[in-house]
Every structure is written in structure tokens, then in C-alpha cells.
Nucleic acid binder design. Structure first.
Lengths: 402, 402
DNA sequence: GACACTAAATTTAGAACCAAAGTAACTGTG
DNA sequence: CACAGTTACTTTGGTTCTAAATTTAGTGTC
């Protein structure tokens, strides 16, 4: 066994998990906390006593009894603890400040050139400014970007679309900002946000599919995001779908992304004369919304391919539910029927009923996802390592320092 | 969060894990045990003291110092503790008795008709006999079969190829045999065996591909076998590879298995006139070994499809290594070059180097895999639930009752 | 052969957590 | 309105494991 087998819960994990739970789920009774965290009621009582004494938590109203002693709700004294999340793209960064409850406090977009020689220094500057301007206790910084990251707690990045090769994003930011910094692939950050605030509340195993510039897949297994051996899991966009298809940025031919990503949609649209040389996806979308049949067929064909490929992923991973979101979701009406037909047709009978949920999209979700890397640390002692410990420590001193 | 988040290691887990480690890995020093299990050296010292007093463990020779105090190896006093593993197929069962170290003690095959009305009673009888004939402490029984199992510790089975629909294999066997019984999909049992005795010693994330009657995939993530939401993960054989391909047993068209499984090989062989109507895979294999070019091309074409589909799985799951085994491995020479070419060609540059290990095959590995469900319980407190607890309890009394 | 150095094992004091048993506060029923 | 039934919380008395300091037993160096 290369890694320790027994995860002996260490130190202040329960305390942090309680605070995290109260932050993300809102007021909760002691009994519910015990059930949610899988610890004994006795422990919750003890820990609560301590947190009450330290003024980190307070007792709220009682809830009406359901046949027994009524539960007393606990709430955070100071719910101002939050995190900064940033999503990096080739030409801009999106930056949000998020509360423990997942609510966006501030949100802005900044021009950025990832290909510039000292791109990482520029990133540091943007973040330093955001940290300086942040009001209230700050737990840490989450960074999401389109690329492979060796580990959240490490943060060395390979991102061809940003021109980054072995760039030490995590170490550099940590050194400059003196805050916990967690870095992950952007699709994984969306999956992390879902586990905290979305589908994860009801499900342990699910997939998160993103459609937009590319196609991505976040895999949640037993309640945690699967990152694979080198942080590269979920490269759904490079599933081979046509051996002789167009050349993809990854160097191969016939990747799913070449048909279903923006470039694929544009190529199909040009071929069908929906667009001329300079046309964009926005033009294509407008044509489809205006009722152009050829434009709609472009999306429908993409839907067919996506449905078929997704059937393979569902067979491999057996999720309870599939969540679909992303920049491209506004045109989902045009994907939908072909997608559904292809997906169901290629699924085994026992899987055919897997629910697909379409979620509304706004671009700040990328950045909120990045922030939720930090906000998830109270519940994830494994993949966040030492950075997670730091976040949990900060969480427990957040309220007193207000 | 639908499931408890904090796994507070309970009770006798460390004791059982130490015994399991000594059994599966052989003699080990206290310091190495602490590192392998992720517990403190102090705990190992304490637990060892107790196990020594109970005569479950003994001190062996010292190993030469590597610059410090030399380590003293610990070994099991009685390594006779073992498990029975059974693999169920439509027409026979394979039954082995396996020691903690993974060595096969007894091994036999029994005719069996899964489609017979009271097939489960017949299975019970076969196992009752095996239990009666077992010498030494018996930890439990592992069952592997081609189908979907709701949970190892439960064991309700859907297996179309056996004609089984919601058959309560686990509950029935437990009631009749009064022993811990763990049930899982056969490919998952192979993956479990790999985590204990094979690839898992060096790797945390890997895939196990089986080729034979069908095509299967076992997924190991963070050292544990991923079963998906309903125990149906790894249905690699039903990846859609050709929208208009032949009808598959699952009701869809163009599944991978329809080209790469036995039926697919036979169909291709007949089409190319390598075989006549009554020909079998054994005939096809013989022709290929005898140098028949058409026969070899059948395997090569299958290899191409397998390689391409596997590239998709590697992109999704980012394993460190892929292990290939199964009944069909004897003809791998004929798959190999086409498989390698297709796999590498469809992988992204960063993944292209993923190692593929071909493992030797013998049919008893299915049954050994089943047994290793039981033998893995000391390390897997999650998916084995109450049955695992029972196994661990039996492990700790095994030696005294000898 | 004295010395520093290293790694393994042990001791000790204490933190974290739990099971079991008890107490508290309500609902419903005769 | 007494009484059982139910659920929430608390207290008590451990057990399990850890961190930190210490002891043990070797290697290598001058």
C-alpha cells in the first residue's frame, strides 16, 4: 500500500467540520450535526460547549418538536468568514469573494494575458490587491484554471491553452500572499462547488459535464472529486469519437471536443454555410434562436455525439445523476432532443433512467467553484493536505479577530 | 451531505489492519507497519504488545541496520487464517481456499447450472460442503459473479447472463452458512486482488481490463475499487463504438463488446471465413497460433478498437498504470501491436506514456479475487460494513482457536 | 575506541472521541 | 391530566490514539 490506509481523523477536524457545516448549510441542531458528520452526539455537545465559550457559535431559536424534545439550532456568530476564488483564462481573470454560505459578495473581471512572460507575477498582483481589499476574515484563495494540476495543495500547472508548462502557481502565490492557496482544474472546481452547495447535498456519486469552449467532466465518487493519478481525470473532451476526424489541439484526430467544443461548432456551421469566415459562436447562437434550421442542426449533431460519448462515461462510472452546465448552456434547447435520444439509446436498460439536470449558468460560477476549494476543506482532510489544515486553523480564529 | 463525512476509525481497526498487513505482506517491522497504515509508532508498539501477549504475533529476526537501530520483524504466529472464494458462471463454479498471503490452498471446479430454478440453493450446498471441508480458521466467503451487485456487504444480484434478477445471494448465503459473506462483480474482485497482492502495492490509481467472454474494467481510485452508485461501474464492454454496429445482449447496437468480446471475435472470424458455423474461440486461437493471417487480423482489429476505447477511459480516469488480464490473454500477441498503436495514437501527449502491464492468466484468479474481498476487509472499513467487522473479529480470534 | 549520527522502539501525559446511561422537553392517548 | 412514547441533549467513565521526549542499538569517522 503506497499510501496510509487508515485515515485516523486528526486534531481539530470535528471542530472545523462543525463550523463549515454551520456555514454551508445554515443553522442546524446538534443532533443533525452529529448525523451529518458521522460523529456521536456526545462529541457534538462537547465541541459545541467549547465553541460557545469561544463565541464562535451561538444558540438560535428552537424548532417545533416532532414528537420529542425540540431541537435548538446553532448558528455561526460571525458568518463573515469567506474565501477568494479566481478563474484564469487566456485573456482575463474572474475574481469573486464568497461567504461560507456560498453567496457572492464581490465579483469582478480583470484583463489578463496568460501568455505574457511574467504572467504569474501579474496574477499575484491581481490577487494581492483583492486580498488587501477584502473585508472580514479570509480563509484562503482558490484558483481554477483550464489545465492539469498536480495536486490542490501543491499547485504546479500544465495548461497548454494558457501556454503554461510546469508553472508553480501554488508555491508562488503562497509565498507572495502568505495565505492558504488551493489550485485545481476549472472543471474540478465546479464539481467541488456542486458537492458543497448543489447536487452533493443529495448525492454521493455524480458527474458534472461542462459545455462551452471545450467539453469537460468532473467526477464525484463517494462525495469527493476524483482527480486521477496526476490530477488529469475528466479529460472527456479528448474521448476518441471518429478515428479520422479533425485535428485537435491535443495533437490527435477525432476528439469529441473537435465536434462539440466551440471550434467544432464553428467548423460545422461554416461547412453548412450558416456562418462565414469571421463568424463567432454568438452569431451561430443568434441564428439558431432566430429559427435557422441549419444552425439548429449544428447543435443537434453535437448533441448526438455528446449523448453517445456520455453514455460511455455513464457506463464506466455509474453515477446517480449527471449535471450539465457551462457557457454553452444557453443554446441547450437545440442540443437537447438529439442529446437525449443518443444518450438513452446507447445506455444499457438498467442505466437508461439516469437523470440529467441542466443548471443555469453565469460565468462567475467558475470563480465561485475556485473559492469552494477553500470552503470545502473542513470536509476534505485528504486532498487538501497541509493547506487544508491552515484553512481550518484560520476558520477557528476567524470570528474572534473580527 | 448524504453520508457521514468524517470516518472516525472505530474499535479494533488497527489491530485487524496489523494482522492483515502481516498476512498479506509477510514479516514487517513496527516502523514499517506504522508507515504503511498511517498510524503512529506508539500505537504499533502498544498494539504489538497486546498481540504478542495473545500469541497472535511473534518477533522474528532483526534486519541489518541501515544507519540506526535495527528493525525487528514481526510475523503472524499462525498464518493459517484464510478465506473461501467462489466465482460463479452460467455452467460451473470455481472454488478456492486462499491463505492470508494470497496463496491458493485448494482449488476445484464444480458443474453448476445458474438457470436452474433453485440455483441459489445449489450454490449454498456447494459452499456448505467447502466450508465443512475447510481446515483451519476461516474468515469468510467471497463471491464473484458477472453482474451488478448492490453492495459487497449486502449482495443482491442482477446478472442477465446467469438469468438472475434481484437474487439475494448475500443474505441467503449468510443465513445458511453463518459466516461473513461478501459479494461483488467479478471484475471488481480481480481489482480487489490487485490492490492487495499486485499493482496496488505500488500504485493508488489504476485500471484493470479483462478480456475474455466479455470486456470488463475495474477502477481503482485512491487505493479502493470504485463501484459507482449502484455497483455498476466499469461497464466498459458497453461503450458505444459504432452507432450502427451489431446488436448487443444489452439491447443496444455497436457496443465495444460486440467487436472485442468472444461473440465479436467469432462473428469477425466467420465473416472472414476463418471459421465455419460451429467454430469456437479455441479454433480461432489455434488458427492464429498456426500463422493464419486472417485469424490474426481478427485479433488485430479487436486490438485497435480496444485501444481506442481504452484511450477514452484513460482520459476520463487518469490512471498511473493499466493492467490487462483475462481468459483471452493467451492470444495477446496478436492483439498487441494494433492495440498499442491505437491506444497511443488516441492518447493526449501527456498521457501517452501510461504503462500497460499484461499479466499471466489462470482461471482460478477469478476465485482468488473473490476470496480477496474477504482478505481486504482489514483495510477497507467503508464498503464492507458490518460483514467486514465480523471478518475482522474472526481474524483476531483465528490463531487462538487453532 | 570516543564521538556524532541515524533510525527503531518505547514511555508518558494528554487529547479526542465514544458508548451507555441519564436527563430534558415536548407530543399524543386514554 | 397522568402516562407512555419520542426525540434532543448531557454526563460519565472509559478506550484509542497521538505527540514529544527518551531509550536502544546499530553505523560511520577521526
Amino acid at each position: 500500500m503506497s499510501q496510509p490506509v487508515l485515515s485516523t481523523s486528526r486534531g481539530d477536524v470535528v471542530r472545523a467540520a462543525m463550523l463549515g457545516l454551520l456555514g454551508t448549510r445554515g443553522p442546524t441542531s446538534r443532533a443533525d450535526i452529529a448525523r451529518a458528520l458521522g460523529v456521536s452526539p456526545a462529541t457534538v455537545t462537547q465541541t459545541t460547549k467549547e465553541l460557545l465559550a469561544r463565541d464562535l457559535v451561538l444558540e438560535l431559536a428552537s424548532v417545533p418538536s416532532q414528537g420529542g424534545r425540540p431541537a435548538r439550532l446553532l448558528g455561526l456568530v460571525d458568518d463573515a468568514a469567506g474565501a477568494i476564488g479566481i478563474k484564469v483564462t487566456a485573456d482575463h481573470v474572474r475574481l469573486v469573494s464568497v461567504g461560507l454560505d456560498g453567496a457572492v459578495r464581490t465579483d469582478r473581471s480583470v484583463d489578463y494575458d496568460a501568455f505574457r512572460p511574467h504572467a504569474l507575477d501579474a496574477l499575484t498582483d491581481v490577487l494581492a490587491e483583492a486580498v488587501a481589499g477584502h473585508v472580514g476574515p479570509l480563509l484562503g484563495i482558490g484558483v481554477g484554471l483550464p489545465g492539469a494540476v498536480d495536486g490542490q495543495a501543491s499547485g504546479v500547472v500544465d495548461a497548454p491553452t494558457l501556454g503554461w508548462d510546469r508553472v508553480p502557481v501554488g508555491p508562488t502565490l503562497r509565498a507572495a500572499l502568505e495565505l492558504p492557496v488551493l489550485v485545481d482544474n476549472d472543471v474540478n472546481t465546479l464539481a467541488a462547488a456542486e458537492t458543497l452547495y448543489g447536487t452533493g447535498r443529495d448525492h454521493e456519486d455524480f458527474l458534472v459535464v461542462t459545455i462551452g469552449r471545450g467539453v469537460g467532466l468532473g467526477i464525484v465518487t463517494r462525495g469527493v472529486v476524483s482527480r486521477g493519478a496526476h490530477g488529469g481525470a475528466g479529460e472527456f473532451g479528448h474521448t476518441p469519437v471518429a478515428p479520422d476526424g479533425p485535428l485537435c489541439g491535443c495533437g490527435n484526430h477525432g476528439c469529441l471536443e473537435g465536434f462539440v467544443g466551440e471550434s467544432g461548432l464553428l467548423a460545422a456551421a461554416r461547412e453548412r454555410r450558416v456562418l462565414t469566415a469571421g463568424g463567432t459562436v454568438a452569431d451561430l447562437a443568434r441564428a439558431a434562436h432566430d429559427g435557422d434550421a441549419a444552425a439548429r442542426s449544428v447543435y443537434a449533431d453535437a448533441g448526438t455525439l455528446l449523448g453517445r460519448a456520455l453514455a460511455g462515461a455513464v457506463h464506466l462510472l455509474d453515477p446517480e445523476v449527471v449535471v450539465v452546465l457551462g457557457e454553452g448552456i444557453g443554446e441547450w434547447t437545440f442540443w437537447e432532443s438529439a442529446f437525449e435520444e443518443a444518450l438513452r439509446r446507447h445506455l444499457m436498460p438498467t442505466r437508461r433512467g439516469v437523470p440529467v439536470r441542466i443548471e443555469p449558468w453565469s460565468e462567475d460560477r467558475w470563480a465561485v467553484g475556485a473559492a469552494s476549494l477553500v470552503l470545502a476543506t473542513p470536509f476534505d482532510a485528504v486532498s487538501t493536505g497541509r493547506e487544508g489544515e491552515l484553512v481550518r486553523a484560520r476558520l477557528q480564529t476567524a470570528a474572534v479577530s473580527r
